[in-house]
Design a protein around this nucleic acid. Structure first.
Lengths: 117, 117
DNA sequence: TTTATATTTCGTTTAATAACGAAATGAGGA
DNA sequence: TCCTCATTTCGTTATTAAACGAAATATAAA
């Protein structure tokens, strides 16, 4: 039960839903997500840790970046069910659509470092 | 998007999940739910209003009671999807199982009024 | 119309959450 | 080793949420 509540809590925030929907396109690093959401890095990092604790996503080191990705084969059938649900949701939402476009054009080598947006 | 966030917020509380799972058995009035959860009436009423605002449940007056029930054919496909998801979830959870048992034996004519549990 | 009772609303308190900037961590490259 | 830079953690602040009891509503019965 605690697991399920944790999953729904993870999804009960607009920014975390946006992150999850972005990750459906491809794995992203913290700074890419930060530049799309327009939040502080520390805030995004916190959102990602909440999603990770819920089991919906996982992280993987890649050179100096940490890539976050949707955790398929998490082993938890409840997580899989929710991830399938999220696949079909919000596909026509305007916020999600523009986030998706940004995901295709964002370049971590430009975006990150000292520069902004 | 706001609708979806509202739905997940509604489900991000253990007591509200318990209520929703109870309502899968049959419609219940506020005092029946109150006696099973062991919370104050006003608290349960608030939980029910949150679930209702999310579109997951609806209420119907019946004599001096207000029956709450799962809102099938809500018209909203996202609500239907989530309700279907919840159907298959937590079926083996201990808390949910004991709640279900209590639902079958609870009698609003005895439970309500001045008496407790 | 009065009384009883089921439910909602109000006001308050306490706990949880989201946001930020600054400082700490940790891994790669010079 | 030392520096750089992406990320996390820490400390703080402001907002939201959950709980309660008391008071207000509303409906049935007397």
């Amino acid at each position: 039960m605690k697991t399920i509540v944790r999953i729904f809590k993870a999804l009960s925030d607009q920014n975390r839903i946006r992150i999850l929907k972005m990750l459906q396109s491809r794995p992203l690093c913290v700074c890419e997500i930060t530049s799309i959401l327009g939040l502080a890095t520390s805030t995004v990092s916190k959102h990602l840790s909440i999603l990770k604790t819920s089991g919906l996503i996982s992280d993987r080191k890649d050179a100096k970046w940490v890539n976050y990705e949707i955790d398929l084969n998490s082993g938890d059938p409840e997580v899989d069910r929710v991830l399938r649900l999220m696949r079909g949701m919000l596909e026509k939402d305007e916020v999600i659509r523009t986030d998706r476009k940004k995901v295709t054009t964002v370049d971590r080598n430009r975006i990150c470092s000292t520069e902004s947006s």
